[in-house]
């Protein structure tokens, strides 16, 4: 569990996850730097963040190997602010 797999592999899966996290962060930053805006862009950036959160929960916090409701606790949490933020941005672009 915890994304801690046998060490025989050349690159641990969790190291790959880490690389993905870094990449998504730089992309997010790049979007900001390029001055992109709009509902689609904002929601994409938010989706990146939620994906990153899910990866942290699964691989770093070790929820991937847990059964029952605790398995989904971070996902569930991400959906609450994620959903509310999406709604607020959606409404602000509609008006």
């Amino acid at each position: 569990m915890n994304g801690i797999e046998p060490t025989r592999q050349l690159i641990r899966p969790c190291t790959l996850v880490y690389a993905v996290l870094m990449l998504l962060t730089v992309v997010t930053w790049g979007i900001g730097r390029a001055g992109l805006s709009g509902l689609g862009v904002s929601l994409t950036v938010l989706a990146f963040a939620m994906l990153k959160g899910h990866l942290i929960g699964d691989w770093f916090m070790g929820l991937r190997g847990v059964r029952g409701i605790w398995r989904w606790v971070v996902v569930a949490w991400l959906l609450i602010p994620g959903g509310l933020i999406s709604l607020a941005f959606f409404l602000s672009y509609r008006s």
Binding site: I31, V45, A49, I56, M61, L78, P81, F89
Partner: peptide, 26 residues
Amino acid sequence: VETGASYWHMVDLLWLILFPLVYVMR
């Protein structure tokens, strides 16, 4: 170790939402 680690990952998790929300999304 796991207890301390879990708390630290949470600190990270929070920032992952905070960063795009406050700095990028517009």
